[in-house]
Amino acid sequence: MQIGRLVIGLNGLLSTPAVSCIIRKIKAIGGIILTASHNPGGPGGDFGIKFNVANGDSVEVYLQLLRNIFDFSAIKGLLTGPDQLKIHIDAMNGVMGPYVRRILCDELGAPVNSAVNCVPLEDFGGRPPEPNLTYATSLVDAMKGGEFGFGAAFDADGVRPPNQHHNL
């Protein structure tokens, strides 16, 4: 088997769901993902390799898929309308950061300060990128403050659904 094409995300970053989307869109037989996944990354950290099969280019391709699945105008109205839902999304310095900024802020109109820790860092800012009560404490604290109606945190590669916290 030969490698016929390389698709590399901006700055070499792609979330696992985006890789899966791209594999399907370009009808590739699969794709290899180099990832820290749920482990701390960086020079001294763990590292993993994933292979996504055929049913498995970056933010824009994934954004187009989401536009076909969700009613973006309804979501935009919720995030920007007179009764605006204030959200707090923590990308935990993983690869979801550029997606969070592009989709929630640029496309759907959420205020830029709605998305935090959106710069991917090789060591995830010194904390494990696990969206749980132990490591997403800044999200928990923000939600306790009562300012936000919805909060979420993403894991390192965006493969697991985010933990969600709702103020009722």
Rank of each mutant, 00 (worst) to 15 (best):
F47G: 03
G41R: 05
P111S: 08
I23L: 07
D123E: 09
A28W: 12
A74N: 01
A142E: 12
L121P: 03
R160M: 12
C118Q: 03
D155L: 10
R102S: 03
K27M: 07
D46S: 14
A74S: 07
A156D: 05
L168K: 15
G126M: 10
F154A: 14
L168H: 15
N39I: 11
V119R: 04
L13T: 02
Y99R: 01
D46C: 09
D106R: 01
R160D: 08
G41M: 06
A54F: 08
G97W: 09
S73F: 00
V7Q: 10
G45H: 15
P111L: 03
L63F: 10
C105H: 05
R101K: 12
V59Y: 09
V59K: 05
I32E: 07
N55Q: 06
F72P: 00
G77N: 11
P43D: 07
D57E: 12
R102M: 02
A28M: 11
P162N: 14
N167Y: 15
L6N: 10
E130T: 04
A156R: 04
N167C: 14
N163T: 08
N11E: 11
S138F: 00
V59I: 13
F47C: 03
T134V: 07
F150A: 15
V119A: 04
N93Y: 14
D57H: 12
K144P: 04
L133T: 07
F70Q: 01
P111N: 04
P98C: 04
A74I: 01
Q64C: 05
Q164Y: 09
A91M: 02
G145V: 05
I49G: 04
G41L: 08
V95I: 08
A152W: 14
L13M: 06
N68T: 04
F47D: 02
V61P: 01
D57F: 06
Q164F: 15
G48N: 09
V7K: 07
A91G: 05
P120N: 05
G158E: 10
I87R: 00
L168E: 13
K86T: 05
A152I: 07
I23H: 09
A152R: 09
Q2V: 09
G30H: 09
I3Y: 07
L6Q: 11
V119I: 10
G158W: 08
A115M: 01
I23T: 15
P82Y: 03
C21T: 08
V19Y: 03
C118R: 00
P129A: 11
T16I: 14
I8G: 02
N117R: 12
P161D: 15
I29G: 05
R5L: 14
L10V: 09
F72Y: 06
C21I: 04
I32P: 05
F70C: 05
Q64D: 13
